[in-house]
Amino acid sequence: MNKKIIFFFIAVLWVIVVAAMIISKQSILRKGKAVLLETLPVDPRDLLRGDYVILRYKISTLDLDQVKSEKPYYKTGEVIYVRLEPRDKFWEATAVEVKRSADSGIYIRGKVGYCYRKELGVIYGIESYFVPEGEGREIERNIRREKSSVNVEAVVDSKGNALIKKVYIDKNS
């Protein structure tokens, strides 16, 4: 095969992959609804992408007695939709569904991490937030000393896909 054609094929393929990644994420940011979520973070490091903060949300652990649920038990890895409703400052989970309802409410798509008795651990794919080198530790230190709190503005599209739009680090003192 002609090497020139192969070169163009690879270059075009790479551009398409990058463009597809960017477009899919941008579409969530553009069309989605913004929700403010309360978090509890810690900080590790990723080899490829540097420092990041692990974000654990209040909606990451659901009490099945407190939220409306279709089933009493969910399998690990099962895809679920969690209905979010605004409560004071933050959005909170009110229902768990296996298939997204047709109503106009905000549903965030998640995967079941664990289900123990009535406690449901959910992963939404917005648990990592990448920060400039060295900042992760500082954020973590401040939170431990209760000097700051971290809240996340996430965007959820009509299919339930979520993306972090902004992270608010409020200094308490």
């Binding site: 790479w14 992959v17 990058v18 990644m21 960017i22 994420k25 590790p44 990723d46 490829l48 992408r49 540097g50 990041y52 692990i54 992963i123 794919g125 917005i126 648990e127 990592s128 937030y129 990448f130 993306l163 972090i164």
Partner: peptide
């Protein structure tokens, strides 16, 4: 190319639990 994919993953905060996706891409 690996750096490019990692950068986009970083910009859009693709969680580390999906690093397998970065490796595949």
């Amino acid at each position: 190319w690996g750096g490019t994919i990692a950068l986009i993953g970083q910009i859009y905060n693709i969680p580390t639990s999906q690093n397998w996706f970065i490796m595949l891409l």
